[in-house]
């Protein structure tokens, strides 16, 4: 990783039909970095990706990818990036090889160079043995791998991946995550969007947390954890309604915040050992049964909860 900038996003804004999908987005990604956009569905991640891949024109602002403007020189941008879309965008009635040849040609590859890259990518995504089978006959994981392989054909310096692990089995997911790391090890800059906290945590050099079209937190994993000040999250499930217990817990000195969503209660506390007896005692006194409890050390989920007051998975 170097200090050179691969992606520079400046006040990027997108709105349509009165709805603002992305507002005043600003961040930079260094060359050779894996940068994740983490956020729930509808946070604006895919809209951002669509603008960076020149599919959508921004309402205002601009982004430079390796110095090329998405507004002024979109063709140059398209030549240096590879985009892995969220959906499996392959031709299911063509074989893996036919797919790669076609997409390679769309990226301007031809002749021996095209044949070499097709072979290399088939090897990379472990589809050499099944290269002549129609993509429609592949498993979901194989289709995902082909979907990724297409974006790597022209050896792009920046790869943008939009939730590439949605809806696949753990084994295929593992292969894809390892593949992203391998790709990055070769010096490729990766912009990765996900709503899986664990993926962002495992892969990324830096993470930006998005919600409602804005970046609400940005930094390395440890920098983000520090936002919640080392707070521990206690998740409770109660059989009855908590009544005024929530207000009571909020008033406690070591409790940072309390939130309730869909019957699940989350407490962000500085010290779980001192607060847990208080919680059990107060619920027992109120005649409320605790049916479930989970204590979590600080993580990105806690950061998101801290910043937005709601859980990331909602």
């Amino acid at each position: 990783m170097t200090n050179e900038i691969a992606i520079h996003i400046k006040d990027l804004h997108k709105s349509y039909n009165g709805f603002t999908a992305v507002q005043s987005l600003n961040f930079t990604v260094r060359k050779g970095e894996i940068f994740s956009l983490l956020g729930p569905n509808g946070a604006g991640k895919s809209t951002t990706i669509s603008m960076l891949s020149c599919l959508l024109a921004p309402t205002s602002g601009d982004a430079l990818l390796l110095g090329h403007s998405i507004s002024k020189t979109p063709r140059a941008v398209k030549e240096v990036i590879g985009v892995v879309p969220q959906e499996i965008a392959v031709y299911d009635d063509l074989s893996a090889r036919q797919n790669l040849i076609f997409w390679g040609r769309m990226y301007g590859l031809k002749g021996k160079q095209l044949a070499r890259r097709v072979d290399e990518v088939l090897d990379l995504v472990a589809l050499t043995d099944r290269q002549h089978d129609r993509a429609g006959h592949y498993s979901g994981g194989m289709q995902r791998r082909l979907n990724i392989g297409i974006a790597l054909l022209h050896e792009p310096q920046i790869v943008i991946m939009d939730e590439p692990t949605v809806g696949i089995d753990p084994q295929s997911r593992r292969k894809i995550l390892d593949g992203v790391k391998e790709l990055n090890a070769r010096g490729v800059t990766v912009l990765y969007t996900t709503h899986y906290m664990e993926e962002a945590q495992e892969l990324s050099h830096r993470i930006a947390i998005m919600d409602h079209g804005r970046i609400i937190g940005e930094g390395t994993h440890s920098e983000l954890i520090r936002i919640v000040g080392g707070l521990i999250r206690i998740s409770l499930t109660l059989r009855q309604s908590p009544g005024n217990l929530i207000e009571m817990w909020r008033a406690l000195a070591s409790v940072h915040s309390v939130s309730e969503e869909n019957g699940a209660i989350s407490l962000l506390v500085k010290d779980s050992t001192s607060i847990l007896p208080v919680v059990f005692e107060s619920t027992a006194r109120a005649g409320i049964s605790v049916t479930g409890m989970d204590v979590q050390e600080p993580d990105l989920e806690a950061v998101f909860l801290h910043l937005t007051g709601k859980a990331l998975r909602d």
Binding site: L55, V83, P85, E87, A89, Y91, I150
Partner: peptide
């Protein structure tokens, strides 16, 4: 509907 058209538009074509 299959997403390949959007993908085509993302290539330098």
């Amino acid at each position: 509907e299959q997403g390949t058209l959007a993908r085509l538009y993302k290539t330098p074509t």
